[in-house]
């Protein structure tokens, strides 16, 4: 890594290698190819948004790997206010994410 690369804050190739490895190994270990995760995300969005309004742009679906066990972690921000009254929402008890809309009330 030369002086200029360092000056412009370019990441070293070893660092890039490590990050790429960590990502790909999560999928290798869980035996879920990254493309399948994208499909799972679409499915989840379709199912959840039948009941509640969600912030589709910020849904995150990830596989994590801790202590030799893989976990699917899904983060779905809900939209609040009157937008939240999605069709067929009655009876659902979705917990609101306060990340996007801190003063959630309907």
């Amino acid at each position: 890594m030369n002086f200029l690369e360092r000056l412009f804050g370019k990441r070293s190739s070893a660092e890039t290698a490590k990050q790429r490895l960590q990502l790909v190994l999560v999928h290798d270990r869980a035996e879920i190819p990254p493309g399948v995760l994208a499909l799972i995300k679409d499915d989840i969005i379709a199912v959840i948004s039948r009941r509640v309004n969600i912030d589709r742009e910020h849904v995150v679906v990830n596989v994590t790997h801790e202590d030799k066990a893989s976990k699917l972690v899904v983060d779905i921000p809900l939209l609040s206010g009157t937008d939240g009254q999605a069709p067929g929402r009655s009876g659902s008890n979705a917990q609101r994410s306060t990340r996007r809309t801190p003063s959630a009330s309907s």
Binding site: M1, S12, S13, A14, E15, A17, K18, L21, Q22, L25
Partner: peptide, 12 residues
């Protein structure tokens, strides 16, 4: 930093 270090490989 052109090559993975021992520590990098241990972490991964």
């Amino acid at each position: 930093q052109e090559m993975l270090s021992t520590q990098d490989i241990m972490d991964v």
